[in-house]
Amino acid sequence: MSASAQAIGPRAAAKPSSLKRSRRWALWWSYVFLVLFAIFFLMPPVYMLIMGLKTSGEIAAMTNPWWVFHPTLENFKALLGSTQYLTFFRNSAVIAVAVVIITMLIAVPAAFSLGRMKFWGSTTLATGVFLTYLIPDSLLFIPLFKIMAWVHETTGIALLNHWWALIIIYPTLTVPFCTWIMIGYFQSIPKELDEAALIDGAGYIQMLTKIFLPVALPGIIAATIFAFTVSWSEFLYPMAFTVSTDQLVLPVGIVTTLIKGDVYNWGQIMAACLMGAAPPLIIYAFLMDYYIAGLTAGATKG
C-alpha cells in the first residue's frame, strides 16, 4: 500500500486522509447506533434489576420506574428463604444436569458413528436427525401428553405432573442439534488420526474415548452449553405436563404461581426472573466463545 502510494506521488497525499476521515465517520456512526441498539437489547434485564431492588411500597408509589431510590435486597432474601422458589430452582437444576448428561451420552457416540464410521444408511440417518430438529415442541406436546397418560393407564407409572418425567422428554429437544454439531466437529478431524489409531491396534471405542473426545472437546463444551440452556429455559413441555406447585420448574413456576391474580408482587417476581436467568447468563459470561461456536455451528458447518 505505502509503496504504491509513493509511486503515485503527490496525488496520494489527499487520498489516505479522506479515507481515514470517512472511516472515522463510519466508526462514529457505528457507535451511535450500537449504543441505541444496546439500550433496546438491555432494557428488560436492566429493568428486572431495578425492580428487583425496589420495595413493594416504592413500586406502589409509582415513582420514576427507571430509578431505585431506596435499594434493598429484601426481594432476593425473601426468595432464597421461600421453599417454593427453591423447589423450582432445584427441579430446574436437576433436570438440566440430568438432561445434559443423557444428551451427551446419546449424542456423542451417535455423532461418532454417523460422522466417522460410515455404514449403510448413515448419511440418510444424519439428515433425518437434522430434520427431527426442525420438528417443534409445539407440534409434539399434545401427542406426548396423550402418550404419557396412556403409559400411566397401562403400566401404572405416573409421568404426568412429575417433574422428573421431563428428564425423559427434554432430550428430544437437545439430542438432534447436539448430534448435528458433533458430527460437524468429528468430520473436521483429519482422517490420518484414526488411521494411526487403527494401525496401533486401537478399537473404535478406544479411538472415540482416547482421540476423538479430547480433540473435539470445544465441540463437546459447545453442545453441553446448548443442552443446558435449552433445558433450563424450556417452557411449553413443563407448562403442559406439570401442574402441582412442587412439581414446577423455574420458568413455569414464576409465571403461574408468583403471578397470582391481582396480587402482583412485582419486586419479587423481577428478582425471581433475574435469579432464574442467572445460570445461563453466568455460563455465557465465562464461556462466551463456546456458546457462540455452538450457535453458529448449526448453519455454517454441515
Binding site: 444496546a38 429493568y47 440452556t229 429455559s233 414464576i254 417476581i269 445461563p280 457462540i292
Partner: peptide
C-alpha cells in the same frame, strides 16, 4: 468482543423470564 457479548444477552436470558419483564414494561 465486548459489544458482541452485550448484544447477545436477550438470546441468553430464558424467554419466559424476559417476557415477564416485557409484560410489566
Amino acid at each position: 468482543r465486548k459489544w458482541r457479548g452485550m448484544l447477545l444477552v436477550p438470546w441468553v436470558i430464558p424467554t419466559a423470564m424476559s417476557t415477564i419483564a416485557w409484560f410489566w414494561l
